[in-house]
């Protein structure tokens, strides 16, 4: 695979993770469990959508077909989205939203730490800016996982259920194909083994403090990186794309 094409695919994957998760978290706006956390979740969603904007604009440049970030965000079909299945999963209760975010942040932080030294300057710059946001996201979600896990019997049971439900999507975080091999060889992205070691350490540390147990069931589900999604994504896209589909090219 040619380098430019691989980089486009890779940036699109990063962008779609941020975009879809950002949209999911934004669904909490006005519905947070307490005012303080409502604002925290909204800040977090805005950080993710900001990352998606930079990444999608860059993906559009790499593609070179005249599509900008908006066109990529709002005018693709479901199969063209390359996000992880993890990030499209529905919000559920607050604990599930936090667990989904924690599993993702624990991956994004070491990834951006490495990507800020990428041989691709544009990607390195986006990673450097996003890293500061992601460090805070991981800190905040870790604190919550610990408090909910090591909290009351009800909070413990509910967040353990969330972990059980989401665990099958975590293997895909380290999905690897030609796109990755080409870019690793060019020193544009780090190897997934490096990232996985750090992810595993963070997960183990925090879950231990939270008195939570990693499910022993090793059933895995993946497909997002190839455009095969769970039922959840279609509904999300229908809402997210409605305005552009109903009123093409509208702006405000």
């Amino acid at each position: 695979m040619e380098k430019q094409k691989a980089l486009y695919e890779y940036v699109l994957r990063l962008a779609d993770d941020s975009l879809i998760l950002g949209h999911r978290v934004s669904e909490w706006c006005g519905h947070g469990p307490i005012l303080e956390e409502d604002i925290a979740l909204t800040n977090l969603a805005l950080d993710l959508i900001g990352q998606a904007t930079s990444l999608l604009n860059y993906a559009g440049e790499l593609e070179g077909k005249g599509r900008d970030g908006d066109a990529l965000a709002f005018l693709r079909y479901e199969r063209e989205y390359k996000n992880l299945l993890l990030v499209e999963q529905t919000n559920g209760d607050f604990g599930k939203t936090i667990m989904r975010q924690f599993l993702f942040d624990a991956f994004r932080k070491p990834l951006f730490e490495k990507l800020q030294h990428s041989s691709d300057q544009h990607l390195a710059a986006i990673a450097e800016k996003s890293l500061k946001e992601t460090k805070y996201h991981l800190k905040h979600t870790s604190e919550w996982v610990i408090r909910l896990g090591d909290g009351t019997e009800e909070s413990h049971n509910r967040i353990q259920e969330s972990l059980d439900a989401l665990w099958k999507y975590t293997n895909e975080i380290f999905y690897k194909d030609d796109v990755d091999s080409v870019l690793i060889a060019e020193n544009i992205i780090p190897s997934s083994e490096e990232i996985k070691a750090e992810w595993t350490k963070t997960i183990n540390d925090v879950l231990e403090q939270a008195t939570l147990t990693i499910p022993s069931n090793n059933w895995i589900q993946e497909g997002g990186r190839k455009g095969f999604h769970t039922e959840a994504l279609g509904y999300l896209l229908a809402e997210m794309q409605y305005m552009q589909r109903a009123y093409p090219n509208m702006t405000w």
Partner: peptide
Amino acid sequence: SLRAADSTMAIENARDVYTR
């Protein structure tokens, strides 16, 4: 002012509510 379960969360909430 704000509500939080402990001092760590109070600082995080303050960051999100008062320094955005």
